[in-house]
Design a protein around this nucleic acid. Structure first.
Lengths: 351, 351
DNA sequence: TTGTAGGCGTTATCAG
DNA sequence: CTGATAACGCCTACAA
């Protein structure tokens, strides 16, 4: 025997409700999960007992007994970045109606925090795990491979997916943005980046190779910072870059927030966009289409990415093991061509 | 007896680890939770057994047995709104180090979805519940009052807190913003709002009363929409308002995203801010200080709100029941005076 | 420092 | 349609 250990009055449980309704505990449980299997009269009595006692089922007990959690674990790199917010919304929109609960943890772009988040989530015995990154720590990878549940790696693309990989080539996207600027006739094309996480690194690599290809590469054109990206930072990085490279003609920004900062900084300095400076963002967040000038950006299909991630997960869970043929799905991206970029006045012709 | 019901290979459990390490299950459990209570040699054997088996404790079982979840439930009205993202970050920063897990659910500004979220969270037997709203459904309120855990209602202020209320007066904030514009000499002051949730309604009420006080009220000056607020919407609402009230001198925007949209729309139409149009935002999001022109806004202490919410919760949990004296804490707000508002040229004097 | 016993609240199974 | 019973995996209390 042992004494009760909590001073808090214990919440009412199944058996309390059963007692009050004059039925057995199982019946109450059934009335909650499969009401059609319980006679209407009993159901009514049970329902009112539940209301009276403000009864709420204990999920822990339920999960333990049924060994099904209905939890979908998600690790995002950031909560403040609009891309992830949109991606999450897509996930919610798919999973909520299907009766699954989305549980989100933030890794703040840190592989170690991501590993911790993965451990935490696996502890919940989730039905699936969704990661907004493709580079996990070896230990995390090991755990994921043993998890026995669908694992989705998104946003980026990898040659060695743990399970299923849905994303876009960040390298190609960086390359496309750069080539767009090159084709407009720009030669001094800078790049702004905050926090070089794996995705950003790939974008920068795409930029760098594109520049090298055309013999335009110059270390001085890269301006980056270790702090999280903000609008303010965009302005600051741009200012720093501009003072180092006064002949700058265009900037490719690692994301739309930075680009917004550049737009404002240009306005402040009286630099006309796109006449004197072409600006390209990344992600195509909501505001990109309605800024002034409207921002040219790389449109990342984050909503479709979320929808598809969820669709595949649900298919696997329900189809009990039917995996998609391809474990690596490239969703592609597009250049959202708008008013912040245009043909260089100096040249006026394609290279 | 009964047959196993799941086809998935069962994850390894405490007893598996114990077997492999040649100790008893409790010892493994202890090695995980209080390593200092286990001898170094055993600890080592246990650790390697854990690694070998990729063992991860089953949280459900742990919660059930200990009746403590270390979960802090949070319901936010939106995941895409910057205010909540910042507030959440503050919560994470406080709770994570303290060993608590923040579990976030989204109510999308709907009281009914909030109620569902509350039920879901209560099912997790959280240690505390934090709500970013003060108006709950009667049933939700009932549940919360019976929950026996600290309940924090934030963002707004209420006369009848369920437990603890930390926030600001949205009414006063709306009033302040309006008075600011009135004092600048503006008389035709419009207001833009998306989605009239309770907080926004209070802000609008603050505006309306302020306008009435000065005899400036005019229904035509209110422009709102039921859809979520976006930058684009800001521009659209502004356009609509302007075509109805061509003599508009200033706009108070329900939030900074709308204000950003107004700024862009003004730029597009060649309306000079603040010379021809004063613009006030709400929330003082990061970009407000670095936009061009810098946006005058209402600075809401969302970070402090999060910090204090967490601090109080932790105090109650650890101090086992020591509640703060006041159950209603008004954190106040400030007018972040910047470049998007200025003295009306027509009058040039205070009213 | 380590092990044994019992129970946490729910669900699956099988019997009525 | 309803009820009895045995798990689910771990933790608290107590004993060794």
């Amino acid at each position: 025997m042992h004494m009760p250990r909590k001073q808090r009055r214990p919440r009412s449980k199944l058996s309390d409700v059963a007692l009050r309704a004059g039925v057995s505990a199982v019946t109450v449980s059934r009335a909650l999960r499969r009401p059609e299997m319980v006679s209407p009269q009993l159901r009514e009595r049970i329902d009112s007992a539940i209301k009276d006692l403000a009864y709420i089922p204990n999920r822990a007990a339920s999960i333990l007994a049924s060994s099904r959690s209905s939890v979908i674990g998600v690790v995002v790199s950031s909560l403040t970045n609009g891309v992830f917010a949109d991606y999450l919304r897509a996930l919610h929109d798919m999973f909520q109606p299907a009766g699954f609960q989305v549980m989100v943890l933030n890794s703040r772009y840190s592989p170690l925090e991501e590993e911790k988040a993965i451990v935490t989530l696996l502890g919940q015995r989730p039905e699936a795990l969704i990661l907004t990154d493709v580079d996990q720590t070896p230990y995390a990878r090991e755990l994921l491979e043993h998890a026995g549940i669908p694992i989705i790696q998104t946003m980026g693309l990898t040659d060695a997916p743990i399970d299923i990989n849905i994303g876009i080539s960040q390298y190609d996207a960086g390359s496309l943005a750069t080539h767009h600027l090159i084709e407009l006739g720009h030669r001094r094309i800078g790049i702004l980046a905050a926090r070089l996480d794996s995705r950003t690194r790939n974008r920068v690599a795409g930029y760098t190779d594109a520049m090298k290809q055309k013999g335009l590469h110059d270390e001085a054109l890269l301006e980056w910072s270790a702090v999280p990206s903000t609008v303010k930072l965009g302005g600051e990085l741009f200012s720093a870059l501009l003072s180092r490279c006064p002949d700058l003609e265009a900037v490719f920004c690692g994301n739309d927030d930075l680009a917004l900062g550049v737009l404002f900084e240009c306005a402040r300095r009286g630099i006309k966009v796109p006449e004197q400076m072409s600006v390209v963002g990344f992600n195509d967040l909501e505001f990109a289409a309605s800024s002034c000038p409207a921002l040219t950006s790389i449109a990342v299909p984050r909503h479709e990415m979320g929808r598809l991630s969820a669709e595949i997960v649900l298919e696997i869970i329900r189809g009990s093991g039917a995996r998609p043929k391809t474990s690596r799905i490239d969703l592609g991206f597009k250049l959202a061509l708008r008013d912040s970029t245009r043909m260089s006045a100096q040249r006026g012709l394609k290279v």
